[in-house]
């Protein structure tokens, strides 16, 4: 590859990383369940795009397979499964409740991003530019998604944030471990699908029994 082309690829990798981070913020800010799902799908597609670009950068065909797995499992199968398992009124258009307001959450997410940068900083000497792009942002995405789980009160957004953690981990993973055994990637994809199936069915049961999926307001089991 010419140096010029390498520079282009690097800029594109950075750009995808930037948008990936934005999707993490979007998951906090989305006000409807469908919005969360859409943001998650976009984030998964960005993960796939990053894998394709890194595949070119590292000359690794494995990463293209990873991209294919990500697209099939996360952008196609998960929305499909969610529509099948979760009942329609759960993904209907209505505004979600949050424990902490959106602007405040966004500021906290920013602070988490900076924190992620400080966590990964000691690991970053002698690493490639792609690692510099994906590792901190993958970490930040993980932290933000963990935070999102804690502020979301409803079942499906919680579950999507859970999946977003996995996205963040693999966003860092494709840059730092491009030769990660494919069986591992397949395992993760399988795991994600199992999570969707299990939690989808469980939230339907909760919905059927209690008429709402605001799992955050369930508090019968508090330790007294």
């Amino acid at each position: 590859m010419t140096p010029d082309k390498v520079a282009w690829i690097h800029e594109l990798i950075l750009l995808v990383a930037g948008f990936f981070l934005l999707c993490s913020f979007g998951l906090i800010a989305a006000s409807q369940v469908m919005g969360c799902l859409r943001v998650y799908v976009i984030q998964s597609l960005l993960l796939a795009a990053s894998a394709v670009l890194l595949g070119i950068d590292y000359h690794s065909a494995d990463l293209w397979i990873v991209a294919a797995i990500a697209i099939v499992a996360k952008a196609v199968l998960i929305p499909f499964l969610l529509r099948r398992t979760a009942r329609h009124d759960m993904i209907a258009r209505r505004e979600l409740q949050q424990a902490i307001s959106v602007p405040m959450s966004l500021l906290i997410a920013l602070a988490l991003t900076v924190l992620a940068y400080y966590i990964v900083d000691p690991m970053m000497d002698h690493t490639s530019r792609s690692v510099h792009a994906n590792l901190p942002i993958g970490f930040a995405a993980v932290l933000i998604a963990i935070y999102t789980i804690t502020v979301r009160r409803e079942a499906l957004p919680q579950m999507l944030s859970l999946l977003a953690i996995e996205n963040g981990a693999f966003f860092a993973g494709i840059a730092i471990a491009p030769n990660f055994p494919l069986i591992g990637e397949l395992a993760a994809a399988f795991d994600v699908l199992m999570v969707v199936l299990t939690l989808g069915v469980l939230s339907t049961q909760i919905h059927r029994l209690s008429g709402s999926t605001e799992v955050g307001t369930l508090s019968e089991l508090m330790e007294d």
């Binding site: 950075l14 990383a17 930037g18 981070l21 934005l22 913020f25 966004l106 997410a109 920013l110 991003t113 900076v114 940068y117 530019r129 510099h132 792009a133 901190p136 942002i137």
Partner: peptide, 14 residues
């Protein structure tokens, strides 16, 4: 605001 700060952050991180 977050988008703008993300711009700075990605710049700083990379």
């Amino acid at each position: 605001f977050v988008v703008a700060v993300a711009a700075v952050l990605t710049r700083m991180m990379t």
